[in-house]
Structure formats: structure tokens, C-alpha cells
Design a protein around this nucleic acid. Structure first.
Lengths: 248, 248
DNA sequence: CACCATACGTTTACGACGTATATGTACACT
DNA sequence: AGTGTACATATACGTCGTAAACGTATGGTG
């Protein structure tokens, strides 16, 4: 998972080899930040964000709640850890496919990978919106900052000046996040219900006062998908990074 | 018992105004859904989402926590109520400025108003992302559905077919939400700090491994603002609602 | 070997939380 | 005057985050 070390986790002595010994608690062996985050991520994936508590995460690892505080300064830090885990997964995802020499294609590749990772963890994805608001830029996990760095480098390669780079960066990030949240919205209610219209609880919509919405609802239940995101991304890039290999 | 409460109780001691009936609770008079939501909104605006609890909201109204359950089925419903309150404010905002006959201008007007309302309640705005994921379309507050209906009607007026309408609708919504969250992000840390770069905790950013980010950070601290949102909105509309009064 | 500092997990405790349930209380009717 | 109903309170339970104090195993040092 490639989790960074928690800087708040005291003076880190060299970690022991992964051998088991007496006093080990739980089937996972000795704790580590990565184990804690993995357990938390699994718990949230399975039971949702509201099921995440220090005690339950500890139980997941066969350990008391307080044991986790060595690896995450508190519950908020644990949530931030989930974001970190997602970005770690993004880096794996990016490493798995081939890098493109074209900055625009590369942006598309990053956007698509981000989208995939986020939708693979629908319960965690909302944290991408909320935790980012609670943590200032420079305190965000390194994986997040590296992602930002990557995107900035690409825009820079496109020949944008500082101001235009910032504007394009914002546009790209905002669009990706918006698309992710929007498509998650289309999955709410019962994800197992095959009929998308029913998934949205479409019955009981007052057709009289909301005719267009009633009519459009089945179409709205469809997700934009990576394709929709890509189309919009191109549209935004054409506007915010003009003259630099625009589509059409 | 309502009549003989402890008369020395702080905020409730002087709360009975002349002309009120005995049995009134709190300086706001009898409870109502609107009062509850207003109190909750005020509390969150002042102290943040984490300060919102049934007990504290009740205290705000001079009432026990359980009294709120008549007006909001539980804490989640209270959060949904905050979203509802925001959309109610949006409707006021829209009523305050003049409607445009041009569908595209009208979309801009709606987007700008949404942006204003959201940024006016930075602590509440994240709920626009999170609660929408917890509530299926048809169960969302009426004010939300009316907003959707308005936007759909405008796109319909632009002559889009059903599929294109849905795609454009998603794009518009996703973009607005993304812009709102992105600009809120630029306000985190210390909102009173006049220097935007410092607001982001820019000190302590490892300049070695993140050169572009370090250089771009001051620019990133600036918000896109309604202008940035408007530019992107036009770009998206040009792509998703082609041939219908495109800019340039 | 003996000794100890340190890293790591547990125990205990406290106050706040959401909310189910049962219990008043005041008002609108007859 | 009596009664049903709408409304708020009182009480209680289980869970939460986490501060503080406490063991205990480990690996480095004499």
C-alpha cells in the first residue's frame, strides 16, 4: 500500500523483522501504520464511514482502541489516513499503466485513474471532499502532494504561465472531484437494484410540480462515467490551457 | 415540568417574553421545523459541523434534545435539514435578482447564486457533497428538487434531447459542486491570515521534491471565484450543449 | 550476565453523544 | 368539567473519543 510514516509517531526506532513472537496480538502480528490504515479502510469499505470508530478498528486488529494512537494521532488523523490510502492506491494504479509523453493524454490518464480508485471505494470517496477542507495544503499526505506536483508539472509542460497554471490546476481538480461525487450520487440508495430509476427512489416523485425531473430521472440515474469526465476535461483544458494542443 | 423549571438556569432564566403563554420553551417561542433548522444552521456557522449535536441544538433553543425529534427524525435528518436550509436560501437569492430570458444567462445566474450561498456557509457546504450521497434523489428536500427542475427546464429550452440534457445537467452540477469545494479548500487553515500563501501552511513544504507545488502554492491559494466558475461553465456548456448559443 | 531505557499495548476513567422509552403537561375540543 | 392529543421532559443505555497511568517485552549497554 506504500503508506508514509506518520511524522507524529514519535522517534521511530528501527522496526523489527516481521517474525511473530509471544505477546503478539491478533492474526496480523505487530501493529504498523499500514496495518492500521488497511484495517480501517477494509472496515469502511465493508460497513461504511459511520461504522468506523477507534474501538472497532482496534477490534479488527485484535487490539484495544488506544493502541491505535501510536499510529494515528486521533480519529481525524485516521480519516486523513484513509485519504492517504486512496492516494497510495492511485500511485499504484498510475504505475500499472504506461506513461504518455503527451501532457494532455497524461492528464487524462491521471484523471481516469483517480476516478477508478475513488469509485472503487465509494464509502471513502466523500473524504476526498471533506478532509481536504480540514487539512491545509502543506499538511496533506505526501501522496496527495505528489499528485498535485505531477499535475502541475504537466500543465507547466503545456507552456502555461504561473497564473494560467493555477487556474487550469483548479479547473482540473474541481472537475475530477465533481465528477466523482456526481457519479457516486447516481449510485446511492440500493446499489444492487438493477433498474437505475428505482435506485433513486423514483416512485413517489411528485410528477405534477416536477415534470422535467420526473421525465429525466432515468437518464440522470446513469453515471457520466470516465467518458463523460474525459469530455468535460477536454472542454475545460481547451478553455484554460488555450493553444496547447487543443482538441478539435 | 415546563412551568417550574429551575429558575436559576442560565439562558432560560429570562427567556420568557411578555405576551408568551406559560409553557413556551425558549426565547424563540414554540418550536417549529424552521426554528430548529435555523438554530442548527447558526450553531454550525459559528462553531463548525463537529459542534452540532442534538443536545447543543436543543440548548440553543432552550429545549431538551429529545424535543427536536418531532421536527427532525434524527441527527442525519437534521443534517439533511441544513442542506434544505441552504437551498431555501438559494431560492431567496434567486428571487432577489432578475430572471433572464436567455437560458444560458439564467444558468449562470443560478450557478453564481449557488456559489454565493455555499461560500456564505463554509461549514455547511461540505454537506452538499456528503448528504447528497446518503439521500436518494426522490427523497431530497423539495427545494433541492425544484432547483434540479429549474436547471433541467433551462437545458430543455436549449433544445437538447433527453440524453444530452442529462449529460449537460450532470456536467453543470458536478462543475458547480467541484468549484465550491475547491474554493472552500483555498480558505482552510486560518481564514483570518491575510497572506494566502501562509494560510495554507506553506512553510514546511519540502521544496526539494515538490518544486512546482512550492512555486505554485501562492497562486493556488487564490480562489477561482465566481469568475473562474463562469468560464468553466461556458466551456462545459459549449461542449455539452453544442450549437445552442455557444460563446465565441 | 544484569540492568535499564524505550517502544508498545492495556486498563481505567470521564464526559459527550444518539436515541428508545416512559412520563408529564397544556391546549382545543366537546 | 373532562378528555384526547400535541408537545416537551426525564431517565436510561450503549457507544464514542481520548487523557492518564500502568504494565511488559525488547534490544542495547555495562
Amino acid at each position: 500500500m506504500a503508506i508514509e510514516k506518520d511524522p507524529s509517531a514519535g522517534p521511530t526506532a528501527e522496526r523489527r523483522a516481521p517474525g511473530r513472537r509471544a505477546g503478539d496480538h491478533g492474526r496480523y502480528g505487530r501493529l504498523s501504520r499500514e496495518l492500521v490504515l488497511t484495517a480501517a479502510l477494509g472496515l469502511v469499505d465493508r460497513e461504511g464511514l459511520s461504522a468506523l470508530s477507534m474501538r472497532r478498528t482496534g477490534a479488527e486488529l485484535g487490539v484495544e482502541a488506544m493502541a491505535l494512537y501510536r499510529y494515528a494521532a486521533g480519529k481525524d488523523a485516521l480519516l486523513d489516513g484513509l485519504v492517504e490510502a486512496l492516494y497510495a492506491e492511485l500511485e499504484e494504479e498510475l504505475a500499472a499503466s504506461e506513461e504518455s509523453p503527451e501532457w494532455r493524454d497524461e492528464l487524462h490518464r491521471i484523471a481516469a485513474a483517480t476516478y477508478r480508485v475513488a469509485l472503487a471505494h465509494p464509502q471513502v470517496a466523500p473524504l476526498l471532499a471533506t478532509r481536504m477542507l480540514a487539512v491545509p495544503l502543506a499538511r496533506r499526505p505526501l501522496a496527495v502532494l505528489r499528485d498535485h506536483e505531477r499535475v502541475l508539472a504537466l500543465l507547466n509542460r503545456a507552456g502555461l504561465d504561473e497564473e494560467a497554471t493555477a487556474a487550469a490546476f483548479r479547473a482540473v481538480n474541481d472537475w475530477i472531484l465533481g465528477c466523482i461525487l456526481g457519479d457516486l450520487r447516481a449510485m446511492v440508495d440500493n446499489p444492487d437494484e438493477p433498474d437505475p430509476a428505482f435506485r433513486l427512489g423514483l416512485h413517489r416523485m411528485p410528477a405534477r410540480e416536477l415534470p422535467r425531473l420526473r421525465a429525466a430521472a432515468p437518464a440522470l440515474a446513469r453515471r457520466a462515467g470516465p467518458e463523460g469526465m474525459a469530455v468535460g476535461l477536454d472542454a475545460l483544458l481547451d478553455r484554460f490551457a488555450p493553444g496547447a494542443g487543443a482538441t478539435e
